[in-house]
């Protein structure tokens, strides 16, 4: 059997979500093929060939593939399915993957499984539903099994040790051009917030703030705490909705799902939607002035207190302890 992994990348580097997805694909015991579709993305292809557990890297290069648009990427994946007799197609359960893979599934007239957290066999998978309050085991009887992989549920594949063959996909240009003109989609621009801190979903430590932070300025405190451990900063939906921080920091059912070694929840009450995004963290520390806050029911270490006093103290104490 053959599993195609559609890589998430920025035309220069692979994103780490791709590595988690490759690990999931390797659990099927089939050949893992990686599609790198982008614009001038050869440096991504070169790096991809070295990943352990990848047999072939397909390189699709076209100006209209630069931004990973569903309209132009989907026909490339469908074309590969027809040429390669794929049995599985996986991609990360990030906004990138969730955006295009259902479109591919519809074009192939098959279903798709979202947020796969474990692979029981080549056709049976588990995935969370109801914000992680239930886990469904599903069996796909479709000819090709399509799914998005929850990255926090799988380790990253090693970036060294592989030697995959590269295959140029020279048949894609007419398909991509046709898709772009028939759907009339135009990419206008993007505003991507560059941060010195690690990416939220891949960070070893995440410090998140909730409504209790009271303002966006107060998130500085959390940044200082995160920086003592090389961590990332996140937020609850309440904090994002209150306008304290931008939405890409949101941890939860409808935001990012994280599972770091250490998650520090500050001024977060712990709504189920938030817990869905962080409850698989290894160690959870909660700081909240309300002793009854539900976050304490999942926290390994809880401190009831005034966050404006506790957080600076904790930052200093960690600096000293190191």
């Amino acid at each position: 059997s053959k599993c195609l992994v559609v890589a998430e990348h920025d035309n220069k580097d692979l994103l780490s979500s791709t590595l988690n997805t490759i690990t999931a694909a390797n659990k099927l015991g089939s050949d893992v093929l990686l599609l790198v579709a982008g614009n001038n993305c050869k440096s991504v292809v070169d790096k991809a060939t070295k990943i352990k557990g990848v047999k072939t890297v397909f390189h699709a290069d076209h100006p209209l593939l630069e931004h990973g648009l569903a309209e132009t990427l989907s026909p490339v994946v469908v074309g590969l399915k027809e040429r390669q007799q794929l049995t599985h197609i996986f991609t990360p359960a990030t906004n990138f993957g969730k955006n295009f893979i259902p479109r591919v599934a519809a074009l192939l007239d098959v279903g798709a499984v979202s947020d796969i957290t474990s692979i029981k066999s080549d056709d049976t998978f588990t995935h969370p539903i109801y914000a992680g309050n239930a886990i469904a085991t599903v069996k796909s009887e479709d000819a090709v099994k399509i799914g998005t992989i929850r990255t926090t549920a799988f380790e990253k594949a090693p970036v060294e040790g592989g030697s995959a063959a590269v295959e140029q996909l020279d048949w894609i240009a007419p398909l991509v051009d046709q898709a772009a003109s028939s759907t009339n989609i135009k990419w206008e621009g993007s505003q991507v917030i560059k941060s010195e801190r690690p990416e939220l979903t891949g960070a070893r430590v995440v410090v998140s703030g909730g409504r209790g932070m009271k303002s966006g300025e107060n998130f500085k405190m959390l940044e200082e705490l995160a920086d003592t451990m090389g961590g990332a900063v996140g937020a609850s939906r309440a904090a994002v909705d209150s306008g304290f921080v931008s939405n890409d920091l949101q941890v939860g059912q409808t935001g990012k799902v994280v599972a770091p070694e250490l998650y520090i929840a500050v001024g977060i009450s712990g709504a189920i939607q938030h817990l869905a995004g962080m409850k698989d963290s290894k160690v959870i520390v909660a700081i909240n002035k309300d002793a009854e806050a539900p976050i304490f029911q999942v926290a390994d270490v809880g401190l009831v207190g005034d966050l404006f006093k506790v957080v600076p103290e904790l930052t200093e104490a960690i600096k000293k302890a190191k």
Binding site: H67, L69, T94, N95, F96, T183, N184, I185, K186, W187, E188, G189, S190, Q191, V192, I193, E199, S246, N247, D248, K256
Partner: peptide
């Protein structure tokens, strides 16, 4: 909303 920020499309 995309991972890491915002994107604008015209359709």
């Amino acid at each position: 909303e995309i991972d890491g920020g915002l994107e604008t499309l015209s359709m």
